[in-house]
Nucleic acid binder design. Structure first.
Length: 513
RNA sequence: GGUCCGUUCGUCUAGGGGUUAGGACGUAUCCCUUUCACGGAUAAAACACGGGUUCGAUUCCCGUACGGACUACCA
């Protein structure tokens, strides 16, 4: 009764793992850890035509980056290896044959053309759902309509065939979903899904059930797009006689586009101005590039926290959760039922939070690395001062470098709007005197307090009210109309640089004036 | 079209037969401040609609509308 909890994340390696898949992985991870169980990763690569090289590595790297690596996976096999369905190929046929023997599946030899003809015929006859089902299978070429001898002959001669599930005509299929409660579907609305494809590979439905069973999966936590086929899966468990160990299902609400319509898709990201992938991705076939959260400056703990709250909440008013805290607080019962729109503003807020609570050393290294990439070396002391200056105004690590440009480079031009509005004779007079003082040398260390005291005394000597000219002073030294504490900026720049900049401003702005 | 799922502020959501319907993001205003930001305070902002059930429904039931998923030899 108390089986060890085992859950799996089962992506298809058909491209970059998108953010919805990542959330599914996260919920699986959280549930497994919460229950003291195992989180497995299984690669569902049964569609050879859609395989994309690099996709599997991408999935691995994404999960590692977020810190939610699986306990068992293709690259860390456990006792139920292998973890790629392509490598489990040999085992599926026997299960399909078992179903045929039990009378729950059959061979079907219909060609694509014949299937198409059937659909057209049914559509013409105004059948609402033209499908291969308990009614129409009697008119098709399969082992239920063909003589045993002919079936045998076709199989022997290598005729292409598929194996289809034989669904009951009239049966109420009930399934209990941990998120949605009881879901009832009538078997007459289901079709005879293909279980084994003509290329010898199983479809998702068969492989999924067989592998979940063989891997001892206790809970299937997956996206809502699977809900419509869940009744088929329940039937399959029943056909196999595996009902007593059938996993419990939890179908997650979908992630929707922020503008309201439709589920978030892989194409949306860059179009809407935010990433939908954890990492940068270049499609190996088309060369199309998609940007990732990581490269856009999102911290893994921020993305994790953000993702966790897309459809789940702890029931109280806390919002900041570390991975450990998420594990502690997580429960499937508290996952919502309705689709969730993706709001990047909230993700930014989480990112700001985690960025600001990073260690100073970490922040300093963000700045220094970016500077280095641009060929600029910033000494520790200065970098530390800059980080302290900008810490409260950054969203991404890259903002330290981007927003401190004015500290590394003297202005070559001035914000014209601010110049016309704020620049005046008083400011020029004050700056003239201030620069002169700086040039003649300042005895005490030129920190923010000293810079301010000096500016104040200079202003007083000139009979100028400091408040009226401060923006002009900022403009002169930084070229900008707004920014962090000016006196701190002065301290970082140093007396000579400040004086130099003032001289340049005096010359340049005099002309504008 | 059919089947299934869903619907509380713009967004993420709490709540639940009787509440001033709570929080967060975002937005606005004010305070702090030499500017911007941070921080603090305040504000605007929601139970899709119609029927039941009930003394009472946003909460339970049924319909409608709207949204979504699925409807492949894709997962």
């Amino acid at each position: 009764m108390t089986r060890e909890v085992r859950v799996r994340f089962a992506p298809s390696p058909t491209g970059a793992l998108h953010i919805g898949g990542l959330r599914t992985a996260l919920y699986n991870y959280l549930f497994a850890k919460k229950m003291g169980g195992k989180f497995l990763l299984r690669i569902e690569d049964t569609d050879q035509t859609r395989f994309v090289p690099g996709a599997e590595e991408y999935i691995q790297e994404s999960l590692d980056w977020l810190g939610i690596s699986p306990d068992e996976s293709p690259w860390k096999p456990g006792s139920v290896a292998p973890y790629r369905q392509s490598e489990r190929k040999a085992s599926y046929m026997q299960y399909a044959l078992e179903l045929i023997e039990k009378g729950h599946a059959y061979y079907a030899f219909d060609t694509a053309e014949e299937l198409e003809a059937m659909r057209e015929r049914l559509t013409a006859a105004r059948v609402l759902q033209p499908q291969y089902n308990s009614i129409t299978r009697s008119q098709m070429k399969n082992s239920l309509t063909l003589s045993p001898a002919e079936v045998k002959e076709r199989l022997a001669s290598g005729d292409p065939y598929v194996i289809r599930a034989k669904l009951p005509l009239k049966e109420e299929v009930r399934l209990h979903d941990l998120i949605r409660g009881w879901v009832m579907v009538h078997s007459s609305t289901l079709d005879d899904k293909v279980l084994m494809k003509s290329d010898g590979m199983p479809t998702y439905h068969l492989a999924n059930i067989v592998d979940d069973h063989l891997m001892g999966i206790t809970h299937v936590i997956r996206g809502e797009e699977w809900l419509p086929s869940a009744p088929l899966h329940v039937l399959l468990y029943r056909f196999f006689g595996w009902e007593d160990t059938m996993p419990q299902f939890a179908h997650l609400p979908l992630l929707l586009k922020p503008d309201g319509n439709g589920k978030l898709s892989k194409r949306d990201g860059d179009k809407l101005g935010f990433p939908v992938f954890p990492l940068n991705w270049v499609d190996p076939f088309t060369g199309e590039k998609s940007s990732g959260f990581r490269e856009n400056g999102y911290l893994p703990e921020a993305l994790l926290n953000f993702l966790a709250f897309l459809g789940w909440n702890p029931g109280d008013e806390r919002e900041i959760f570390s991975l450990e805290e998420l594990i502690e607080a997580f429960s499937i019962e508290r996952i919502g039922k309705s689709g969730t729109k993706f709001d990047i503003a909230k993700a930014k807020w989480f990112n700001e939070h985690y960025l600001r609570s990073s260690s100073q050393e970490q922040l300093v290294s963000y700045l220094q690395e970016d500077a280095k990439a641009s060929g600029v070396a910033i000494p520790n002391e200065k970098a530390t001062a800059i980080v302290a200056l900008l810490c409260e105004r950054v969203t991404f690590p890259g903002d330290f470098w981007r927003d401190s440009q004015f500290l590394h480079q003297a202005p070559s031009e001035f914000d014209s709007e601010v110049a016309t509005k704020k620049w005046n004779a008083d400011a020029a007079t004050l700056l003239q005197a201030y620069a002169q003082t700086l040039e003649t040398g300042v005895a005490a260390p030129f920190d923010a307090a000293a810079a301010k005291a000096l500016l104040e005394s200079t202003a007083e000597a000139q009979g100028i009210k400091l408040g009226k000219v401060m923006q002009a002073v900022r403009l002169a030294v930084t070229g900008l109309g707004a920014g962090p504490d000016l006196m701190e900026v002065f301290a970082i720049l140093g007396t000579q640089e400040v004086a130099k900049r003032i001289r340049f401003a005096l010359d340049t702005l005099a002309i504008i004036d």
